[in-house]
């Protein structure tokens, strides 16, 4: 028998598959699309904020000390931050299963 793969019963779907809760895309964990993760070497980081500016998913959050914290929930592992970092402080590391 085919396994039920739906996340909601068709009887409970709102009319026309509308989404009734505003902004619920924030719940979607896009981080599990990732095959590589960016790892920042804070010894090399000059707090320039290029990773923060270039990240298409706004996965770097500025902290009070001027460094940037990475958000693993949304990061898809595109590698743009590593490519743009002027000090090569960010390395893309294979995700382990």
């Amino acid at each position: 028998m085919a396994r039920d793969q739906g996340i909601i019963s068709w009887k409970e779907l709102p009319l026309g598959c509308a989404i009734l809760e505003p902004g619920n895309a924030k719940d979607l964990r896009t981080g599990d699309w990732r095959s590589k993760r960016p790892v920042t070497d804070y010894e090399k980081c000059i707090k320039c904020g290029m990773c923060y500016i270039y990240c298409p998913d706004m996965c770097y959050i500025p902290k009070d000390d001027g460094l940037f914290e990475w958000n693993e929930y949304y990061c898809k592992g595109c590698g743009i931050c590593a490519h743009e970092c002027p000090k090569d402080a960010i390395t893309m590391v294979e995700e382990e299963k």
Partner: peptide, 27 residues
């Protein structure tokens, strides 16, 4: 029954991932 209204925002025409598309078609 569900018109566009800034007081009660809804998203229409969103993506239907494989876990939803079949249920959408069945409905």
């Amino acid at each position: 029954p569900m018109s566009l209204d800034p007081e009660k925002p809804v998203t229409i025409g969103a993506v239907g991932v494989p876990e939803v598309y079949t249920e959408g078609r069945k409905a």
